[in-house]
Structures are given as C-alpha cells and as structure tokens.
C-alpha cells in the first residue's frame, strides 16, 4: 500500500471506537438537555449545561475521545509516511485540543481559541489524508474527506456558525470512521492483492 510502513489495524479500531464514543456521548447529553437545539446552540454549550448529566457526559466524553484520537493519530503517524503521517500528527494535536475542550469549558478564558484550533487541526488532518488517499487511488476515503470539508464550509457560510460547527463535528466523526476502517482493512486488502497476483502468476 502506498505510503504505509507497518500495520496500524489496532490504531484504526481505536479511531472507530473514539468516533462511536463521542457520537453516543453527544446524543445522550443533547437528549438529556431539552434546551440544547441542533443548529441553534454551540456544541460546547453542552459542557456548561444546567443539567449535570449532560455536563458530565459531554465533558468526560470529550476527554476520553480526545485521548483516543491522540492514540489513533500517533498510530497513524507511526504506520504511514508523507501526507498521511502529517495527518496523524495533526490528529494528535486535535485530540489534545479536544481534551482541553473537556477541561476548559465555554465562557472560560481561551476556550474559544482552543475550539478554533481544534477545528483547524482536524480540517488540515482531513485535507492531508484526503490528498494522500486521492494520490494512492483510495477514492472512497478521498470522497469522505471532500464530503466532510465541503459540508462543514457550506453550513458555516450558508446557514450559521452553530450549524457549521455541528456539521463539522458530524463530518469529522464520519471521516474518522472511514479512515479507521481504512487502517483496519489496509493489510487485509494488501494480502488479498498479493494472493491474487500470486494466483495470476
């Protein structure tokens, strides 16, 4: 596989788990707080909710997911090279920012700067992995990256900042699932291709 140094299937599974954990934390915390409305409230509003269940699940969810994304990014950087490695390093930074979002809540100093940095790191991680996928011919992954980035930008400039933020998080989660699956399946695909080439020879 183009750009891959060693297997990262385990790290891919961690990425997929991170996306699922954050999705569950987000849905559960948003359901528990009826005042939170998709597209009208910021995602970070859940971290300072009046409902303690919402606040706790969201903040601990951010910390846990951030840590998992850091491990996932480190694994990606370890297993791949070039743009894919850069994407892994950017994911480590994004994961760290997500941990900080769980610790430094909305309204506290630096929260806004941390949130913006999180979105910048994740956007560049997606773009750099999308570039690498496109170059290597993994077009489904490249399409997932293009979908995540363009949907977030369209919602941000076409609807509202709150909706743009939510769509960006949904897009990033969908991309992490696709990218994690790529890491899980990459060695199996390579092995199956080798087998086919052997049979053909």
């Amino acid at each position: 596989m183009n750009g891959e140094k060693r297997s990262a299937a385990g790290f891919g599974a961690i990425g997929v788990a991170a996306a699922f954990i954050f999705s569950i934390a987000w849905v559960v915390s948003a359901t528990a707080d009826p005042s939170w409305v998709l597209g009208s409230s910021y995602v970070s509003d859940l971290g300072v909710s009046d409902v303690s269940l919402t606040k706790d699940i969201f903040n601990y969810g951010c910390i846990l997911t951030g840590a998992l994304i850091m491990i996932y990014g480190a694994g990606k950087a370890y297993a791949y090279k070039n743009a894919e490695c850069a994407s892994g390093i950017l994911l480590v930074f994004a994961g760290f920012m997500l941990i900080l979002i769980g610790l430094i809540h909305e309204g506290e100093p630096y929260h806004r700067a941390i949130s913006i940095l999180f979105f910048i790191f994740i956007a560049f991680a997606i773009i750099s992995a999308g570039y690498s996928d496109g170059k290597a011919g993994r077009m489904l992954n490249a399409a997932a990256a293009a979908f995540a980035v363009s949907a977030a930008l369209m919602a941000l400039f076409g609807i509202s900042v709150q909706m743009g933020e939510s769509i960006a998080v949904i897009g990033a989660l969908a991309w992490i699932v696709c990218d994690g699956m790529k890491l899980i399946l990459s060695r199996k695909i390579e092995a199956s291709n080798k087998k086919t080439r052997k049979v053909e020879a």
Binding site: A142, A143, S150, A151, M154, I159, I167
Partner: peptide
C-alpha cells in the same frame, strides 16, 4: 477519473446542507 468521485462527494455534501436548510 479521480475528480469525478470528489465532485460526487461535494454533491452529496451540498444535498445534506440543502436538506438541513
């Protein structure tokens, strides 16, 4: 060949945003 998949992905993103709006 690769550009078609990217344009289709941007198309799905536009449909999603149109649905939300």
């Amino acid at each position: 060949g690769k550009s078609v998949a990217i344009i289709a992905a941007v198309c799905v993103a536009a449909v999603l945003i149109a649905t939300v709006y």
